[in-house]
């Protein structure tokens, strides 16, 4: 953690140095008060992986299920829906909705959009109607991480490409860098457009980018991601580095494809077609 902070400081410049050092000074001081030093640890039940990955079996998903999966994710992550009618009593100052704005973490995409490089004139007709669930690919070589000037987007040790909304300055370089369009931008305060706020997850604020976080908050508690739970077995997550894991077994058994593989970003989301 110290390491990543230091790297961030280099970016943030002189002004931040004092601030960044501040907590360190504090806790050096406050530590001396108690007999034992404070510690930050993980939950006992947390799920671990060397590198998290996901396998989606498209054949098992129909339009209905796809909608369910999206809904489960979006509901629990307080993803706003700009088609939602605003409660004018709670938010009297909200301007009328612009339906073009859209924020999504996991959604259904047509094959030729999801896999433009694999399109073929004589491609099997069925592909064109399959609901391909797309989301952040949590790439091994994530271009968005390189693009972020404040390191608000970063690769966690377990391979999850995370966002630290506190640090996001809304420059949207990451959106330009992401080849998959997995990121959305809050052009306005999202709160009025959340029908039912889930108290277990924060909302975002205006001027911040957001995307799928692989349900890091659920993995930390030993739970499966929302999409996995809602998918009736069509989506599986697991450790890509562990040969014994479920995902590796599926990869062994099935022919899988990844999105825009030629770009070398090494996505961690695989599709069984």
């Amino acid at each position: 953690m110290e390491k990543s902070r230091r790297r961030f400081l280099k970016v943030a410049g002189i002004a931040a140095i004092g601030l960044g050092a501040a907590p360190a000074i504090n806790f050096a001081a406050s530590d001396s008060h108690g007999p034992a030093a404070a510690a930050k640890v993980k939950n006992d039940t947390a799920l671990h992986a060397e590198r998290w990955g996901m396998v989606i079996d498209i054949k098992k998903i129909d339009d209905n299920l796809a909608r369910k999966i999206s809904l489960a994710c979006h509901l629990h992550h307080n993803v706003p829906d700009f088609t939602h009618e605003v409660d004018t009593r709670l938010y009297p100052k909200t301007r009328p909705v612009n339906h073009k704005q859209e924020i999504k973490w996991i959604w259904k995409e047509k094959f030729h959009y999801a896999f433009p490089d694999k399109e073929d004139e004589f491609l099997n007709e069925k592909f064109h109607h399959l609901p391909f669930m797309v989301l952040c690919n949590h790439c091994k070589n994530a271009p968005c991480v390189q693009a972020c000037p404040t390191q608000a987007t970063f690769s966690r040790e377990d391979g999850i490409v995370m966002m630290d909304y506190h640090r996001c300055i809304g420059c949207r370089f990451c959106m330009a860098a992401c080849p998959y369009g997995s990121r959305s931008f809050n052009f306005r305060d999202p709160r009025p457009f959340i029908d039912e706020t889930d108290p277990d997850f924060p909302t975002r604020s205006k001027g911040v980018v957001e995307k799928c976080n692989f349900c890091a908050e659920r993995l930390a508690k030993g739970e499966q991601p929302h999409c996995v739970e809602a998918s009736e077995g069509a989506i599986v997550v697991g450790d890509l580095e562990d040969p014994e894991s479920d995902v590796r077994k599926l990869l062994k058994e099935h022919y899988t494809i990844r999105r825009k593989q030629s770009l070398g970003t090494e996505p961690s989301v695989y599709y069984i077609v």
Binding site: A12, A15, A16, L19, G20, A22
Partner: peptide, 14 residues
């Protein structure tokens, strides 16, 4: 306005 750190940095202080 830079919203840096906690407590937030005041530019005048720099």
């Amino acid at each position: 306005i830079v919203q840096l750190g906690l407590p937030g940095l005041f530019l005048s202080g720099v």
